[in-house]
Structure formats: structure tokens, C-alpha cells
Simulated assay, not measured.
Amino acid sequence: MTLEILTSDMLSSVRHGFFSRRGGASSGIFAGLNCGYGSSDQTEAVAINRNRVAEAMEVTPDAMIGVHQVHSPIVLSVDGPINGEKPKADAVVTSTPGLALTILTADCQPVLFADPDAQVIGAAHAGWKGALDGVLEATLDAMEALGASRKNTIAVIGPTISQTAYEVGPEFLDDFVADSPDNLRFFANGTGDRLQFDLPAFGLHRLRQAGIGQAEWTRHCTYSDPVRFYSYRRATHAKEADYGRLISAIKL
């Protein structure tokens, strides 16, 4: 099966892709294009999958730049391959051609950024905690440090968990209301005291509030489409031992 690569017309000036799980070498619960070495999948299968992504992005495997994601607002600026242990961060930016910035997700938001005029790109992992703590704004700041203008910057949120699938408790709401009472609008009533949180709408709100030029969500829900996407929450509900990781990438 060939790779399935979701793209956005808004980012057509740069090579990019939100890769689905289709077209990979992994099997079992990881069946497909699992790109996460942090999973319990066979290392050889993950390596094959990542090599396929590198080929699709037209880079060598060592030019695929990723970080040790920790749900933080930390952004790493790079100008070449990372040697040795990956730094802890949740976003990467560069103005160096030939590097493919990558993010791994399995419900959290993968966000790809580009200022085509300044030739600066970024990639961010924005779960609820990272988004609330400012990883999206920090990515824009780091891109500006490389010469980008946020008014000319485009951001696209890829496959992520949608509001109908994202049930949370009242204590979750408290963190968002403490940040801003306006954040109430990203929650809908669920069953009992449960609430439904709209993560991509919150991500778009933070991007637009930060003054970004253009932003959109591809409108793909990871939880509700098991054929195409991995989902941490779906795997948890199914009592599966582990879950695959989707990869998203962007390159100048």
C-alpha cells in the first residue's frame, strides 16, 4: 500500500505532509506507518517507516529533525541534523533548506508553519497542555527570530482528536478558565459532569490571537478514523497495550 500524505493548499509553497498510518511496515496494533521509536513496536519496522517518510520528503533519514516531546512550550531552532540524544522540546523551527522538521502525534495537534517569503518553517506538537502553556506562540516567536513575520506566516493543524471524541472532567475545565474565562467557549456539555473539549478550535484561537496571517485545521479526527489514524485515547478505551505514532513533516 502506498503512503497517504494529507496536504494543505495553504502550504503549497513548501513540501509538507500529515502522514496517515497507511503504507507502513508495522503490524498488529501498530499496523501501518508507525513512526514512533518510543512505542513498543519493532525497531526495524519503525526504521523502515521513517525511511519511507524521508524518501517522500526527499531528504536523507538524518535530515528528518525531531525532538523528545514532553508537552512543553519549548522550541528548538536548528540549522543542521541533530547528533546524539534528541533535546526535550515540542516544536522545531529552521531557515535552513533541506531539513524536514517532524512531529509525532496520536491525538494531539500536529501544527506545521511556514513564512514562504522569509523562507522560515516550523513544526509544533500541541496537546492541550502545550497549547495552554504557549507552544504555538513560542513557535511564532522563534520563527520571528529567524526573520519570519507572523503576519505572513501560515499554520495548518493536521489530524487531531475532535470535540465529539474528547471527553474531559470538570477539573480539566478549571485549568482553562484560570487562564481565561473566554476559554469556556471551547467546552460543550457531555454526560453527567463530563465535558467535550474542542482542541483544534482552541489551537486556532491561540494562533489567531497571536496575530498569525492564516490558520486552518484539516478537519481530520484521529479518534474516529481507525483505518487512517492512530489514537492514544482510542487505544486506551480498547485496552490495547500500546499505540502507533503519526508523523507530520515540513521542508523548505
Results as ranks from 00 to 15, higher is better:
residue 25 A to C: 13
residue 22 R to V: 14
residue 128 W to I: 05
residue 148 A to G: 04
residue 249 A to R: 08
residue 141 D to V: 15
residue 39 S to D: 10
residue 154 I to N: 10
residue 42 Q to F: 07
residue 252 L to C: 07
residue 230 Y to K: 11
residue 153 T to V: 09
residue 172 F to C: 15
residue 64 M to C: 11
residue 36 G to A: 14
residue 169 G to I: 09
residue 78 V to E: 01
residue 83 N to C: 10
residue 205 H to M: 01
residue 48 I to A: 15
residue 183 N to I: 03
residue 103 I to T: 11
residue 45 A to V: 06
residue 21 R to E: 00
residue 27 S to L: 07
residue 17 G to Y: 10
residue 236 T to N: 09
residue 88 K to F: 12
residue 228 R to G: 05
residue 213 G to M: 13
residue 118 A to Q: 06
residue 127 G to L: 12
residue 160 T to Y: 03
residue 73 P to M: 11
residue 104 L to C: 07
residue 197 F to I: 02
residue 50 R to P: 03
residue 95 S to H: 13
residue 18 F to C: 10
residue 212 I to D: 11
residue 243 Y to Q: 00
residue 242 D to Q: 09
residue 212 I to T: 09
residue 54 A to N: 03
residue 237 H to L: 15
residue 158 G to D: 06
residue 96 T to S: 08
residue 65 I to K: 02
residue 166 Y to N: 14
residue 242 D to M: 09
residue 118 A to R: 05
residue 101 L to Y: 00
residue 186 F to P: 06
residue 187 F to P: 03
residue 65 I to Y: 00
residue 74 I to F: 13
residue 222 T to G: 01
residue 208 R to L: 09
residue 235 A to G: 13
residue 162 S to C: 14
residue 110 P to S: 15
residue 120 V to R: 00
residue 136 L to N: 06
residue 242 D to E: 10
residue 241 A to I: 05
residue 137 E to Q: 14
residue 243 Y to I: 00
residue 188 A to Y: 04
residue 46 V to H: 04
residue 233 R to Y: 12
residue 29 I to G: 00
residue 123 A to Y: 05
residue 85 E to V: 14
residue 223 Y to K: 07
residue 12 S to G: 05
residue 128 W to A: 15
residue 88 K to I: 08
residue 157 I to M: 05
residue 190 G to W: 01
residue 94 T to Y: 00
residue 130 G to T: 13
residue 128 W to M: 12
residue 189 N to Q: 14
residue 12 S to K: 14
residue 104 L to N: 09
residue 150 R to F: 12
residue 128 W to D: 12
residue 238 A to T: 04
residue 102 T to F: 08
residue 149 S to R: 15
residue 32 G to D: 04
residue 98 G to A: 09
residue 151 K to C: 03
residue 144 E to R: 00
residue 83 N to T: 13
residue 174 D to Y: 11
residue 94 T to R: 08
residue 178 A to C: 10
residue 128 W to Q: 11
residue 34 N to D: 01
residue 143 M to I: 09
residue 63 A to F: 08
residue 78 V to G: 01
residue 74 I to E: 11
residue 207 L to C: 07
residue 170 P to C: 13
residue 158 G to Q: 02
residue 38 G to P: 04
residue 207 L to G: 03
residue 192 G to Q: 06
residue 92 V to K: 14
residue 211 G to Q: 06
residue 203 G to W: 03
residue 10 M to V: 05
residue 145 A to G: 09
residue 75 V to P: 08
residue 72 S to R: 09
residue 173 L to F: 02
residue 62 D to G: 01
residue 25 A to I: 12
residue 85 E to L: 15
residue 58 E to C: 12
residue 112 L to G: 07
residue 87 P to K: 07
residue 26 S to H: 05
residue 58 E to G: 10
residue 58 E to Q: 15
residue 175 D to A: 15
residue 145 A to E: 00
residue 89 A to T: 00
residue 13 S to M: 06
residue 180 S to R: 03
residue 52 R to Q: 11
residue 160 T to M: 12
residue 171 E to C: 05
residue 164 T to S: 15
residue 181 P to V: 08
residue 82 I to Y: 01
residue 147 G to Y: 12
residue 106 A to E: 06
residue 75 V to T: 13
residue 225 D to L: 10
residue 204 L to D: 04
